[in-house]
Design a protein around this nucleic acid. Structure first.
Lengths: 216, 216
DNA sequence: GTCTATATAAGGATAGAC
DNA sequence: GTCTATCCTTATATAGAC
């Protein structure tokens, strides 16, 4: 053996240290110089590992997805009733969105990407798995709501508060606890299952048979 | 009178033609040369009207907000029951989000802005009014859900599908009709009021007293 | 594999003529 | 108010030495 075996390929280390840069400032906001400086290389060295910035960016997103895939797989997806699975999904994804800010922000950059072709390619990487996870659950819920729209609604209910959290801070009614992923998950579950019913005179705080309630 | 009175100040015309540029590509993705070319000026001329690119961008967002304010004010906000007002709000905002793509995308750019100070300033311009509109309604709903979270959920239920529409196109269950603002509004209202209840054995398709149903 | 040096282009901003 | 011309910086990317 010659010296220490490199823990990771340099290529992967470049991707790793690029993730937070692109997550924060997006494709146009990060230069090859920034990336090189972050890992302590000259910009020219990057071109040994990647043909151009575009390809580097795409692989950065793919890398971030693989990294978060482990956490995603920790979210139970095949057991229990559809409602239980939905509850588990919401809780798991709320935690993921709160924990892995880079993943969350990369998603935002993909949503807003002006390059339609690149956007579609990256959406296949990232968003499709997310969508299909929820799709599988929703199809068993037998709701009268359109399943496609319901999937988007559920994902949005979890992601949107996280994506706007830096702004929500300054809006009325804000409390720091609300940024807690458990708090978010409970709210989403309450909204989806309990909705705006409880607290009204007609229905009181009764729960509908067969549906879980997290709060209380 | 000397010749024709200028319909609009040149300054405003610059802002107007800049809106779609920044909406599509964001702050870093648009150059002063792009803006100058779009309106048929030399880049240098822009600096007569605006001190720098940053200030121009900020005023572009402010201008877009003023433009969409007229449409926003068309959304009824002071009459009827809270439920009816919420229904009207959702319908109005779904239409606004579907109609004014520039406004929608500028909002996205603000959400993701890496410059915290600028983000906060622009959020005050744009997001605060939106938030307060819903806040006023939600506070009267007397829901057991946290009002701050509920406001964000309602806004997200309308905006998130629009912000991801270019990606949702490729997901299962997609139908072009779903992009229709009326369809979106109905879905959101159904979800908020009817939720996942209807269609289930226990509750059947009954509606809860006092709540409007748009569909059927 | 990484460097220095550099080609080439694009971008923000200013000076000064008109 | 707008132009031409230009400065300076930053950016992507390549060439060739080591």
């Amino acid at each position: 053996m010659t010296a220490v075996i490199p823990r990771k390929k340099k290529r992967d280390r470049i991707l790793e240290s690029s993730v937070p840069l692109f997550a924060l400032r997006g494709y146009h906001g990060v230069s090859m110089r920034d990336i090189a400086a972050a890992i302590g290389l000259s910009p020219a060295a990057l071109y040994y590992h990647f043909p151009d910035k575009e390809q580097l960016y795409i692989e950065v997103v793919a890398h971030a997805v693989r990294e978060s895939a482990a956490m995603r797989k920790g979210i139970p997806n095949g057991l229990g009733s559809p409602w239980g699975r939905l509850e588990a999904f919401v809780a798991g994804y709320a935690r993921l969105a709160a924990t892995d800010r880079n993943f969350l922000r990369l998603l935002q950059w993909i949503f807003i990407d002006g390059d339609a072709e690149r956007q579609q390619k990256l959406a296949e990487y990232v968003f499709r798995d997310l969508f299909l996870d929820v799709w599988g659950i929703v199809c068993e819920l037998d709701s009268r709501l359109d399943p496609h729209m319901l999937v988007i609604s559920i994902i949005g209910l979890v992601l949107f508060p996280c994506q706007t959290s830096s702004i929500n801070r300054f809006m009325p009614g804000y409390r720091p606890q609300l940024e807690n992923p458990e708090e978010l998950a409970r709210h989403v579950i309450d909204l989806l299952f309990g909705c705006l019913d409880a607290g009204k005179g007609a229905t009181g705080s009764q729960n509908v048979a067969g549906k879980p309630l997290l709060n209380g």
